[in-house]
C-alpha cells in the first residue's frame, strides 16, 4: 500500500526560513539548514523548499543554498522559486532534487511545463497553483507577484497543466495559509475530481486530523503544511516538529 506523504513546505526569503499568514506578514523562523537537519532526523516523507522572492526579484534559483540543503537531506526534495529555463531545471535536478515546482512562470508560459516534462519526465514536474476564493465563491488562480486574483478558474487551469505534462499539483490555498484553520476541503474536492494526477494539499493544516480530512474527504494523494511544522502552542513559538510515524499512520490509515 502506498503511504500518504506528509510534506513540510519550507518558505525561503533572503536565505532564511520564513512563514506567512495568507501570503502576508512574513515571520522569520530560522536557519533553513538547521530545520532540514531536524526534519532529516525525524525521517520526513519529503520536503518542499520554496524561494518565495526568486520570481519577484527576477532571478534564478540560489544553487549554492540548494546544494547546502541537499547535503543534509536523505529524503525526496522538491524545489520551487524562479525556475524559468530548462537549464535551471536540469541544474536543480542535477543537484539531487527529485522535483521542480513551477508556479508563476507556468501561468505566463504554459508550454514550459511540457518542455520541462520532456527533459525530466512528468514525475519531476510539480505545478503549484495559488488559489483564492473570490467574493462570488469561485476558486481562481492568484498571482502572488502582482498580488491580485486572475480571471483564470483554478480547475480549468489545473486541467490544462495536467494536459501539458505536469506530474503533480500543489494546491496552495491563499485564504488558509498560516491560519491553522484546516484545509479548504471544498477547493481540494473540486481539483481532485477534475484531474487524475496526484494532488497535494497546502494551506491551513493546524492539526493532524486536518491531514486525514484532506485525504478522506477530498481525496488528495499527499498533504503539505508550513506553519504546522514550525510553530508550536497558542503563542506560535518556533519549534520544528514532525508527528510521530505511528501517530501519522493511525490517522492516515
Amino acid at each position: 500500500m502506498l503511504k500518504t506523504r506528509v510534506i513540510p513546505s519550507l518558505l525561503i526569503r533572503n536565505g532564511g526560513l520564513i512563514k506567512t499568514v495568507r501570503f502576508k506578514n512574513a515571520r522569520y523562523v530560522g536557519d533553513p539548514i538547521n530545520a532540514i537537519k531536524v526534519f532529516n532526523d525525524k525521517e520526513v516523507d519529503e520536503l518542499a523548499v520554496i524561494d518565495i522572492d526568486a520570481s519577484r526579484d527576477n532571478r534564478g534559483p540560489d544553487f549554492k543554498m540548494l546544494g547546502r540543503i541537499n547535503k543534509e537531506a536523505f529524503m525526496p526534495l522538491a524545489y520551487g522559486g524562479g525556475v524559468s529555463t530548462l537549464e535551471q531545471v536540469r541544474k536543480v535536478l542535477g543537484l539531487g532534487y527529485e522535483k521542480i515546482i513551477i508556479n508563476s512562470h507556468a501561468i505566463q508560459n504554459r508550454s514550459f511545463i511540457t518542455e520541462a516534462a520532456n527533459i525530466c519526465g512528468s514525475q519531476s514536474v510539480v505545478v503549484c497553483i495559488d488559489v483564492k476564493k473570490t467574493v462570488f465563491g469561485g476558486y481562481h488562480v492568484y498571482d502572488h507577484l502582482k498580488k491580485k486574483v486572475h480571471k483564470i478558474v483554478a480547475l480549468d487551469y489545473a486541467c490544462e497543466v495536467e494536459k501539458r505534462g505536469a506530474g503533480e499539483l500543489l494546491i496552495y490555498s491563499v485564504d488558509r495559509d498560516g491560519t491553522f484553520g484546516g484545509y479548504d476541503i471544498a477547493l481540494l474536492k473540486v481539483i481532485t475530481s477534475g484531474v487524475s494526477i496526484p494532488v497535494v494539499a497546502l494551506g491551513g493544516a493546524g492539526n493532524i486530523k486536518d491531514f486525514s480530512a484532506a485525504v478522506g474527504e477530498a481525496g488528495v494523494s499527499a498533504v503539505s503544511a508550513g506553519s504546522f511544522f514550525v510553530f508550536h502552542g497558542p503563542h506560535r513559538a518556533v519549534l520544528i516538529t514532525y508527528p510521530d510515524r505511528n501517530e501519522l499512520e493511525n490517522v492516515l490509515a
Binding site: 514525475q123 503533480e168 494523494s221
Partner: peptide, 15 residues
C-alpha cells in the same frame, strides 16, 4: 481505470 482511484505516477513511500 478512473474507478480504481490510483494516480500515475506511483509517487511516494511504499513497502
Amino acid at each position: 481505470t478512473k474507478e480504481s482511484n490510483l494516480r500515475i505516477p506511483h509517487m511516494g513511500w511504499n513497502t
